[in-house]
Amino acid sequence: MPATSQKTAVVTGASSGIGAETARQLAAAGYRVFLAARRVDRIEALAAETGGTPVATDVTDADSVAALAAAVGPSLDVLVNNAGGAFGVSPVAEGDVEDWRAMYDVNVLGTLAVTRALLPALIRSGEASGGSAIVNVGSIAGRIAYEGGGGYNAAKFGLKALTNALRLEIVEQPVRVMEIAPGMVRTDEFSLVRMGGDQERADAVYAGVPEPLVAADIADAIVWMVTRPAHVNIDELVIKPRVQAAPHKVHRV
Rank of each mutant, 00 (worst) to 15 (best):
V78E: 04
R116E: 13
V226D: 10
V11Q: 00
V185P: 05
V55W: 06
G88C: 12
I222T: 03
S125Q: 08
A221N: 08
V232W: 12
D198E: 07
I43C: 08
A69K: 12
A216R: 15
V33R: 00
R242S: 09
T50R: 05
D203F: 01
R39C: 03
R39E: 06
P54S: 06
N153C: 14
P120S: 04
A23K: 01
R116F: 01
V209Y: 09
E236V: 15
I18Y: 00
A113W: 00
G52V: 07
I134G: 03
R143I: 09
V214R: 14
W100I: 13
R194K: 09
A23P: 02
I43R: 11
D41S: 10
H251F: 11
K240P: 00
A71I: 05
A9C: 08
T50G: 03
R124H: 13
A161V: 15
A48M: 11
R24I: 02
A93F: 11
A3N: 07
N136P: 08
S125E: 09
L119T: 07
E169L: 13
A37V: 10
A155M: 01
L162I: 15
R38W: 06
R201D: 12
L118T: 02
V185Y: 10
T57M: 08
D77T: 03
A221C: 09
I239S: 03
P182S: 08
V72I: 01
E200C: 02
M225H: 13
T60C: 13
V89L: 12
G84W: 04
A161L: 13
E44Y: 07
E211P: 02
Y146D: 13
A161N: 11
P247V: 03
G95K: 00
V214E: 12
L122N: 00
L237D: 05
A66W: 03
E127F: 00
A161P: 04
P174H: 03
F157A: 06
Y104Q: 14
T227A: 06
V175S: 03
S191A: 15
A83I: 13
V135H: 01
A121E: 04
K249S: 08
M1R: 14
F34N: 11
R39Y: 05
A133S: 15
A47N: 06
I170L: 08
L119W: 10
G183I: 07
V106R: 00
A207S: 14
V175Y: 04
L79W: 14
S64Q: 08
E172G: 09
L192G: 11
D41M: 06
A154K: 11
V232H: 13
A165Q: 11
D96N: 14
V171P: 00
V78S: 01
Y31E: 01
V209F: 14
R39S: 12
K160D: 10
V223Q: 05
D203S: 07
A161G: 15
S90L: 14
A67C: 04
M178R: 13
G142D: 03
A48V: 06
L166G: 10
D96H: 08
A221P: 10
E21M: 11
A246L: 08
L119I: 06
